[in-house]
């Protein structure tokens, strides 16, 4: 599907665009192998067991959680009670966290995708002074461990009055070097120079060429970058932890961690059942997004094969 991912640069022969394998219609469908399926299934089970654990334990009450075998149901089926508990605990703050996360994802991942799209397109289709330097600087910067830069970033943001505001989470989310790279490679392949030249000869401005001619061609790449930036923003944990102090701005990850830590304080109430059910609710939207976005990848593949 997401043909974007494979755009590892060396894959693409430099001369002619490769012909995509046409869903194997050209040659006989290979016979299916039970052995191969079983071996792959082992990896599949490995990937899914922790998720199954999460699903099963989301149905348990707090006491059952600690007194029953982890990979099977036990005691009362409390999934609905737990979900209601998650949604109503502490005045329904979970809903607030959910909306915060949604906002961070829409603005952060959306903005990151937009910046990566513009930047990738600019790098792929234009020569400009300092282009080499852009590449070198981006690479060099990402090799420095980000966790260690947390304090300098915090102090800078504090000076700008941004800490403890949604901006302190959104602004750093706007940069996805990986997204920039993907868009770069994708734009280089998906947008033929000839079409751009033709649009310019017709008198279209650069902006118009970009929005009306090139943008549609990059749609599959955009969807893929969006998927990765959404995952990154949705799971964002460390920077909000440093930047935010007001729980009403927390994203879900930070909120769940606060609930998990709650048991460790004198007089604190252990609510592991809510933490587990809350975790389940946290990853569900992402899984749904994966499934939905997959359709776009399908169409993306189709679009990619048309470009020949």
């Amino acid at each position: 599907m997401s043909n974007v991912l494979m755009t590892a640069p060396t894959v693409r022969p430099k001369k002619a665009p490769p012909r995509l394998r046409n869903r194997r219609s050209s040659h006989a469908r290979p016979t299916r192998s039970i052995l191969l399926t079983v071996l792959t299934a082992l990896i599949g089970i490995y990937a899914l067991i922790p998720l199954v654990w999460l699903l099963i334990n989301a149905t348990k009450t707090q006491p059952d959680l600690f007194s029953s075998f982890g990979l099977w149901f036990s005691g009362d089926f409390a999934l609905w009670d737990n979900i209601v508990g998650v949604l109503t605990y502490d005045g329904g703050v979970f809903g607030r966290w959910f909306l915060n996360t949604l906002m961070y994802v829409v603005l952060g991942a959306g903005g990151a995708t937009l910046l990566a799209l513009l930047g990738g397109y600019g790098l792929a289709k234009f020569d400009f002074p300092g282009k080499r330097a852009v590449f070198a600087v981006v690479i060099g910067a990402v090799a420095v461990p980000g966790t260690a830069l947390a304090v300098p970033t915090f102090l800078m943001f504090a000076n700008m009055g941004l800490t403890n505001t949604p901006w302190s989470v959104i602004i750093p989310s706007l940069i996805s070097p990986f997204g920039l790279y993907l868009m770069w490679t994708f734009a280089a392949d998906a947008v033929p120079d000839e079409i751009m030249e033709a649009a310019r000869l017709d008198g279209a401005s650069e902006a118009r060429t970009f929005f009306q001619v090139c943008l549609p061609m990059m749609a599959p790449g955009i969807v893929t970058v969006l998927l990765f930036t959404v995952v990154a923003t949705w799971n964002n944990y460390f920077l909000p932890l440093i930047m935010l102090r007001d729980p009403s701005w927390y994203p879900l990850t930070l909120g769940l961690n606060a609930w998990n830590a709650q048991a460790t304080t004198a007089g604190g109430e252990a609510i592991f059942n809510l933490v587990i059910a809350g975790s389940l609710l946290t990853i569900l939207p992402l899984i749904v997004a994966f499934l939905l976005l997959q359709r776009y990848w399908q169409s993306g593949l189709a679009a990619g094969s048309v470009k020949e």
């Binding site: 915090f154 102090l155 504090a158 102090r245 606060a258 830590a261 460790t264």
Partner: peptide, 23 residues
């Protein structure tokens, strides 16, 4: 009333705020 973390997270946040001189 804000819960900025339990134990060490709380001290980190406090130390950061003091270093930054704001918040």
């Amino acid at each position: 009333l804000a819960n900025v973390g339990t134990g060490n997270d709380h001290y980190v946040a406090l130390q950061n705020a003091i270093s930054a001189g704001s918040g």
